[in-house]
Design a protein around this nucleic acid. Structure first.
Length: 488
RNA sequence: AGGGGUGUAGCGCAGUCCGGUUAGCGCACUUGGUUUGGGACCAAGGGGUCGUAGGUUCGAAUCCUAUCACCCCUACCA
C-alpha cells in the first residue's frame, strides 16, 4: 500500500513529514510556509486550546481580541523588540487590486497605496500596550490579565509543518501589574501552567528553566521556558513566559496612580504557546506506524471496528458499548465503512493515532467479549462486554501514564552530566540529547560553544542549577549548571 | 541565505539523455460481482493544459532561458 511511513532510523525528518501528511494532519498551502490544518490536525489544536483556556480562566485571565494589522510606527517604539522581529514582518502596502490593463489577471492598483504601511502582527505586544495606556489609569485597574487566541505571521526562511511556519496559531497572554514582584509571580505562574499542561495533558516531560541573555525574548527582562526532548535527541522549546519589566510601559507610556496619588510605570508579562505544540506531540510519542495521540488530547479516543462486515447482532452490541463509553465521557466512533476491510481500518486508525481500538466480531460475541487494542504498545486483549466502559476508562489513563513514563525514560536515557569540553563534544557527536554542564555565565562562552558544536543553552534549570565545578569551556568559576542541547 | 535533489492524474512513479502516432504503469476513485479475525480479488470505467511563462522547431513532457514550489544537508529564527 502507498501509506508507508519512512522509519525514524532511516530519515527522521522524512518520518516527521510522512506522519503529518499521512495521519491527515495538514496539507501544504499554495503559499510557502503556510499550512492547511485538516480536521484531524485541528481537532488536536482544539483540545489543546480548550484545556489551556480552562487553565487560564482558572488563574484569573479573560480573553479579548486585538487586530491582525498593526501600524508600522508601533514596531519601532521598543528598540530590542523591533530588532527581534523586524527581519520577518509581512507588510501591507496597498488596499486595492484592479484588472490588469496589459493582460489577464489582476494587479496591485498603484493609486491605492496606504499612507502608513501596516504590519501583519508577528506578536501583539505593541498594539496591546498602545491600548493598555488608555485602559490603565489607577491602581484599581490592576492587575490587568488578558489573553488572546490568534494567528500571527513571521516570515520564515526555512519552514516545517507545525514546528516553524510563516503563519501559526497561538495564544498570547499580556498582563499588567502594579509591582515587579507581582509581575514576576505572574510570569512564573504561567510557566508552571505550561509545564503542568505539557506533562499532564500532552504526556510530555519538560525541563523548566530560564533563558540565557542571548536566547531571551526580544524586549523581555527574563524568559522562562519549558524544554522537551524529541525522539532524535534534540530539544524543543515548547512554551515561554516572559517578565517584561517596564520596557513596554516606558515605550507606550503606560502609568497608573497609586493610593497616594503618585504616578508609576506598570510592570508587564507576556506568555505564549503555539501550534508548535502539535509538532512536539508528534515527535514525543509517535512511532514508525504513525501518529500516537495521548488520550487526554485525542478528539477520538476509541474506534470500534466491526469484524467481519457489520450485521444486526454486531450493530446492537456496538450501540450498547458506544452508549456506555459515551456515558463515561469517552469519545468514540464506529467505523462501519463497508468498503474497507478490517485490516485496513486497523492500520488506518493506528496511523491516525487513535489511542484505543475495539474489534467486535461474531467469534468474540459468542464468548461475550470484544478485542481491545491499545495504540501505544499494540497489545491486544479480550475483554468482557460487561464492564467495558470501566475497562476502557482505566486503559486510557494507563496509556496516558505510559506515554509520559516512556517519554521520561527516553529523556533520562539521553541526558548526561558532563564536566569537560572533550566529553561534551563526544556526547554531541554520539547520541546527542540533553547535557548538563557548568557555565561561567558569559555570552562569549555560550557563543563559542554554539559555533563549535551547534549546541545551545536551552535553559538554566529551575531546579538544581548550582554549579558543581568550574565552567566546562573556560575553566573559570561557573555561575550556573545549565542544560545544553541541539535545538529545533 | 549557501549546496544538492525533485516537479508528468488524488498519491507514488516510468518516459526526458537521443524531440516524432491517440502520454503510460501501480495505488486510490466509480460501477457490478465474489469476499471479510491485520492493509482482499475479478471485470468494466472515469480522471492529464506533463509546475508556470517565454523561446528553438514542421513537431516539445523531452532541447534552451527565466520563474515558482516542495524535499534533503548546512547556517539563522518559536
Amino acid at each position: 500500500m502507498a501509506k508507508e511511513i519512512t522509519p525514524r532510523e532511516e530519515n527522521y525528518s522524512q518520518w516527521y513529514n510522512d506522519i503529518v501528511k499521512k495521519a491527515g494532519l495538514i496539507e501544504h498551502s499554495p503559499v510557502r510556509g503556510c499550512m492547511i490544518i485538516k480536521p484531524h490536525g485541528y481537532a488536536i489544536w482544539e483540545n489543546i486550546k480548550a484545556q489551556l483556556d480552562k487553565m487560564f480562566k482558572e488563574t484569573g485571565h479573560v480573553n479579548a481580541y486585538f487586530p491582525l494589522l498593526i501600524p508600522k510606527s508601533f514596531l519601532s517604539k521598543e528598540a530590542e523588540h523591533v530588532e527581534g522581529f523586524a527581519k520577518e514582518c509581512a507588510v501591507v502596502t496597498h488596499h486595492r487590486l484592479m484588472n490588469n490593463p496589459d493582460g489577464p489577471g489582476v494587479v496591485v492598483d498603484p493609486t491605492a497605496k496606504l499612507e502608513e504601511e501596516l504590519i501583519i502582527r508577528p506578536t501583539s505586544e505593541t498594539i496591546i500596550w498602545d491600548t493598555y495606556r488608555n485602559w490603565i489609569k489607577s491602581y484599581r485597574d490592576l492587575p490587568l490579565l488578558i489573553n488572546q487566541w490568534a494567528n500571527v505571521m513571521r516570515w520564515e526562511m526555512r519552514t516545517r509543518p507545525f514546528l516553524r511556519t510563516a503563519e501559526f496559531l497561538w495564544q498570547e497572554g499580556h498582563t499588567a501589574h502594579a509591582t515587579q514582584t507581582e509581575a514576576v509571580e505572574e510570569a512564573r505562574k504561567m510557566h508552571e501552567v505550561y509545564a503542568r499542561f505539557a506533562e499532564d495533558y500532552m504526556a510530555m516531560p519538560v525541563i523548566k528553566g530560564a533563558k540565557s541573555d542571548s536566547e531571551r525574548f526580544a524586549g523581555a527582562e527574563d524568559t522562562y521556558t519549558i524544554e522537551a526532548m524529541m525522539q532524535d535527541g534534540k530539544a524543543l522549546q515548547a512554551g515561554t513566559s516572559h517578565f517584561l519589566g517596564q520596557n513596554f510601559a516606558k515605550a507606550f507610556d503606560v502609568k497608573y496612580l497609586d493610593a497616594n496619588n503618585k504616578e508609576h510605570l506598570v510592570w508587564a508579562t507576556s506568555w505564549g504557546v503555539s501550534t508548535r505544540l502539535i509538532g512536539a506531540l508528534i515527535m514525543t510519542h509517535s512511532d514508525d506506524d504513525g501518529l500516537v495521540i495521548p488520550p487526554r488530547l485525542a478528539a477520538t479516543q476509541v474506534a470500534i471496528v466491526p469484524i467481519p462486515k457489520p450485521n444486526e447482532v454486531i450493530n446492537e452490541v456496538t450501540q450498547q458499548i458506544m452508549g456506555e463509553l459515551r456515558s463515561a465521557g469517552i469519545s468514540v466512533i464506529y467505523d462501519d465503512d463497508k468498503k474497507k476491510r478490517p485490516g485496513f481500518k486497523f492500520a488506518e486508525h493506528e496511523m491516525r493515532g487513535i489511542p484505543v481500538r475495539i474489534g467486535i466480531g461474531m467469534r468474540d460475541l459468542e464468548n461475550n467479549v470484544v478485542e481491545v487494542a491499545r495504540r501505544d504498545t499494540k497489545e491486544k486483549t479480550s475483554v468482557p462486554v460487561d464492564g467495558i466502559a470501566q475497562y476502557v476508562e482505566n486503559l486510557l489513563e494507563e496509556i496516558q501514564a505510559n506515554l509520559f513514563n516512556k517519554a521520561k525514560a527516553f529523556r533520562e536515557e539521553h541526558s548526561h552530566e558532563c564536566s569537560t569540553y572533550e566529553e561534551f563534544k563526544a556526547l554531541l557527536e554520539g547520541k546527542g540529547g540533553f547535557i548538563y554542564a557548568n557555565w561561567d555565565g558569559t555570552p562569549e562562552t555560550e557563543l563559542a560553544i554554539k559555533e563549535e558544536t551547534g549546541a545551545t543553552i536551552r535553559c538554566i534549570p529551575d531546579d538544581n542549577s548550582t554549579p558543581t565545578g568550574p565552567c566546562m569551556y573556560s575553566g573559570k568559576e561557573a555561575k550556573y549548571r545549565v542544560l545544553y542541547a541541539k535545538a529545533y
